[in-house]
């Protein structure tokens, strides 16, 4: 982190912000400020260079064609890859998660190269879209509470040996591979199919990103009353469907 504070970079809101993706940016920003950090939020449009000096990069979900355009432009730009080499934290969602992998299937039905920052390959599932609430146990090495979120995708993402599953679903589909894995992570790069504002339901993940950036084992506790109430309600709703 630079002396001027925490730099949070939102990658391509013009292409990768389909439904509430701004939520992840707002939650990271808010929780950092509540811990007394100065935060600089940088929204980078796809016709601008991705800065390489950010601390946390958030990459959102997108529709099929914007996803291809985003992948093309991120490959050409190279900034996100260089930021990764500099040790930045990257948290990605849905289409963004697929872009961080080796390749995915684009809107033209062709294999589109990703950035290769996660050892995953995505294809398109043949069945119905995965839509609905998800409940999952996060990789125990991350020591986080249960993951609650909403998925809306048709991707199937195969994990290679270079990543670990981010979580294992109790309810919902996650990676769509049928083996119960959801998302992937390796070092400072995370990907999940929980879309849009997943950090609003899982503020501990936002705190994980901050802890990794600050390289501290814990953060001062905040007033998480409303987050906790929302989590409890969503977990209960997921385990007892109406």
């Amino acid at each position: 982190m630079s002396s001027s504070g925490l730099r949070v970079v939102w990658v391509y809101p013009d292409l990768l912000s389909t439904y509430g993706d701004q939520g992840n940016v707002l939650v990271v920003e808010r929780r950092a400020r509540q811990r007394g950090l100065t935060v600089e939020r940088v929204d980078v449009r796809s016709d601008q260079p991705v800065p390489t000096s950010g601390d946390i990069y958030l990459v959102g979900g997108g529709e099929d064609r914007p996803q291809r355009l985003a992948a093309e432009r991120l490959r050409r730009d190279g900034g996100l890859t260089r930021a990764h080499e500099n040790g930045a934290i990257i948290f990605s969602v849905c289409a963004g998660y697929q872009i961080l992998g080796h390749e995915f299937i684009n809107d033209l039905g062709q294999r589109e190269p990703g950035l290769g920052l996660l050892d995953v390959i995505s294809v398109r599932g043949g069945g119905e879209r995965c839509v609905g609430d998800v409940l999952a146990d996060v990789d125990e090495t991350l020591a986080l509470p249960q993951l609650t979120g909403f998925e809306n995708h048709q991707g199937v993402t195969q994990l290679g040996p270079g990543v670990r599953p981010f979580a294992r679903v109790r309810l919902g589909n996650g990676n769509g591979t049928g083996d119960g894995t959801e998302g992937a992570w390796s070092g400072t790069v995370f990907g999940t199919y929980m879309h849009g504002p997943v950090l609003a339901r899982n503020p501990q993940i936002a705190d994980l990103l901050l802890r990794l950036t600050l390289d501290v084992p814990a953060l001062p506790a905040g007033d998480d009353r409303w987050y906790d109430a929302l989590r409890a309600e969503r977990v209960a709703a997921a385990t007892q469907p109406a």
């Binding site: 509430g20 939520g23 909403f150 849009g196 109430a229």
Partner: peptide, 28 residues
């Protein structure tokens, strides 16, 4: 059934109004 869209709404526009929230998803 997805409330994600709430995060695309700029609620800072309501600053200064006393606000009450109700409804099934008032915790969101």
């Amino acid at each position: 059934t997805d409330t994600s869209w709430l995060w695309d709404v700029d609620y800072t526009r309501l600053a200064g109004h006393p606000i009450a929230v109700i409804g099934d998803r008032r915790l969101d």
